[in-house]
C-alpha cells in the first residue's frame, strides 16, 4: 500500500534512543523544579524512616558499649545516611504508579506513543533523581553534623557505589514494574506490592543492616533480588567489602536486571492484551 502523504524523516535508532533519554530526563527535571517546596517536604518526610532506625540502633549500640555485632555508632550513622541516598535513588515506577496510570487514563495516551513503555518510565525517574540528589546534599550534611558517621571509602568503592545505586534503580524498576502488571488482572494490584515491600524490608538491609540478621537470612538474601537494591549499594560505600565482593555484587545486580527485564517483557506482552481502557 502506498499513500501519498509527506512524512518527516527520522534520526538513527541509537542516537534517537540517547536523545530520547536525555530529553525525557530534562523534562522530568523541569517538572520537578516546578514544585520546590513540595520537593523539600518530600525529602524531609523521606528521612524520617532512616532517622528512626538510626536513633534506635545508636541507642542500642551505646547501651552495649558502643557497638552492636561489631557495628559502631559511627558506622550505623554512615549506613543510614547513605541509606537516604540509596532509598531516593531506588524509588521507581512501581505498582501504585501503574494502578494510578491505568485508573486515570494516562496509559492510553502513553500507548499511543511509538516507544517501549519501560524506556519512558526509566528515563523519567532517572531525571527525577538528579533533582533529588541536589536536594539530598544539605540533608546529608545536616545528618552528618548530628550523627558523626564513620566513612572513609576508597576510590574503587566510590566508583562501585555510583554503578551500584543505578544498578539498584534498574533492579527495582524491573521487579516493581512486573508487579505493576498485576493491575491488568486485578483492579487493586497495590496489595501484592505491599507484600513485596514487607519482604524487601526484611531481606534487603532496608530495616536493619543484613549483618545483624541471622545467618540463614543472610544466605537467603544472597539468592534474592532485594539485597542488591539496598544492602549492597550501601555496603559498597560504607562496608569493608573486598574487591571481589564489590565486583560480584555488580554482577549479581546485572543478573537480576536481566531476570527482571525478561519477567517484565513477558508480563507486559500478556498484560497489554487485557487493557480495556473503558471510559479513558
Amino acid at each position: 500500500m502506498s499513500v501519498d502523504v509527506a512524512r518527516l524523516p527520522e534520526a538513527g535508532r541509537w542516537r534517537s534512543l540517547y536523545d530520547f533519554y536525555v530529553t525525557t530526563m530534562r523534562t522530568a527535571i523541569a517538572s520537578q523544579l516546578q514544585y520546590r517546596v513540595t520537593n523539600y517536604f518530600y525529602m524531609l518526610g523521606m528521612i524520617a524512616e532512616p532517622v528512626v532506625y538510626l536513633v534506635v540502633w545508636t541507642t542500642i549500640a551505646k547501651d552495649q558499649g558502643g557497638a552492636v555485632n561489631g557495628i559502631t555508632t559511627g558506622e550505623f550513622a554512615a549506613y543510614y545516611i547513605v541509606w537516604t541516598l540509596v532509598r531516593n535513588m531506588n524509588i521507581v515506577f512501581g505498582a501504585p504508579f501503574w494502578e494510578e496510570r491505568i485508573r486515570e487514563g494516562r496509559l492510553a495516551g502513553d500507548l499511543l506513543k511509538p516507544m517501549y513503555i519501560l524506556h519512558y518510565d526509566l528515563a523519567y525517574f532517572a531525571g527525577w533523581k538528579f533533582v533529588v540528589v541536589v536536594l539530598w546534599l544539605p540533608i546529608a550534611f545536616g545528618l552528618s553534623a548530628v550523627f558523626h558517621p564513620t566513612l572513609s571509602p576508597t576510590p574503587l568503592e566510590i566508583v562501585v557505589f555510583i554503578f551500584a545505586i543505578w544498578g539498584a534503580y534498574l533492579v527495582r524498576s524491573m521487579f516493581q514494574g512486573t508487579i505493576g502488571m498485576l493491575n491488568f488482572w486485578t483492579t487493586r494490584g497495590a496489595a501484592v506490592f505491599d507484600l513485596y515491600i514487607a519482604t524487601e524490608m526484611l531481606l534487603s538491609g532496608r530495616l536493619v543492616p543484613l549483618q545483624l540478621m541471622p545467618g540463614w537470612v543472610q544466605t537467603l538474601a544472597n539468592f534474592l533480588p532485594f539485597k542488591w537494591t539496598f544492602g549492597f549499594p550501601i555496603e559498597s560505600l560504607v562496608g569493608n567489602l573486598s574487591t571481589r565482593d564489590l565486583l560480584l555484587g555488580l554482577c549479581a545486580q546485572a543478573l537480576w536486571i536481566g531476570i527482571g527485564l525478561v519477567l517484565f517483557k513477558v508480563a507486559w506482552s500478556s498484560a497489554i492484551k487485557r487493557f480495556v481502557s473503558v471510559g479513558n
Binding site: 518527516l8 527520522e10 536523545d19 530529553t23 523534562t27 506513543k113 516507544m115
Partner: peptide
C-alpha cells in the same frame, strides 16, 4: 513547548 520537545524525541524527528 517542553512537551513538544519530548514528542520530537519520542517520534525521532529531525
Amino acid at each position: 513547548l517542553d512537551s513538544f520537545e519530548l514528542n520530537r524525541a519520542i517520534y525521532r524527528l529531525q
